[in-house]
């Protein structure tokens, strides 16, 4: 039953049908409450639907799985303008992947910590290779303008 549900979940995610995806992911979590992958998908669905409070509530209710959604949790806090909380959440992460750095750059920009922010964007531009290089260059320009 689970592989079929995960296949549905994948299809709905690819199609951006996040409302329906949440229904499927809830079925998966009924069968397998500690599934980190499914839980992460659920939080991603909430974020894509703009339901940041709901995402945070789901994370609070499931402390066991909270460590697998640190980036997502911090992103919700950032969108809710709880910027200092977002920074604390990012600092609590034991791994420093590029997504964590990306969000840390945005958080530091909002907190007007431009020197640290500048260093992060320099690092990201050096280390990442994806579709968002131009956006990062733009962000770096904004940081440099703010540093003047």
């Amino acid at each position: 039953i689970l592989p079929g549900l995960f296949a549905d979940l994948q299809r709905l995610g690819q199609n951006g049908q996040y409302d329906r995806a949440i229904k499927v992911v809830n079925k998966i979590l009924q069968e397998s409450p500690e599934d980190e992958t499914a839980f992460t998908c659920k939080i991603v669905c909430f974020i894509q639907l703009g339901k940041f409070e709901e995402a945070l509530a789901a994370i609070r209710k499931n402390a066991k799985l909270a460590s697998c959604v640190v980036f997502e949790k911090a992103y919700c806090e950032y969108r809710l303008n709880r910027t200092n909380e977002a920074l604390k959440t990012l600092d609590s992460s034991d791994k420093s992947d590029d997504r964590i750095s990306e969000l840390r750059g945005q958080v530091l920009y909002r907190l007007e910590k431009y020197d640290e922010c500048f260093d992060i964007y320099r690092g990201l531009l050096k280390n990442t290779e994806d579709d968002f290089e131009e956006e990062r260059e733009t962000n770096l320009s904004a940081v440099m303008a703010a540093m003047q």
Binding site: F6, C41, V44, I47, Q48, Y75, E102, Q106, E135
Partner: peptide, 21 residues
């Protein structure tokens, strides 16, 4: 206000489900 992109939103995506299928 200078342009500043929310790139992090673009990085919010499902983890790989390959080994669940």
């Amino acid at each position: 206000k200078p342009l500043f992109f929310d790139v992090a939103l673009s990085l919010v995506e499902f983890p790989s489900l390959e080994d669940k299928l």
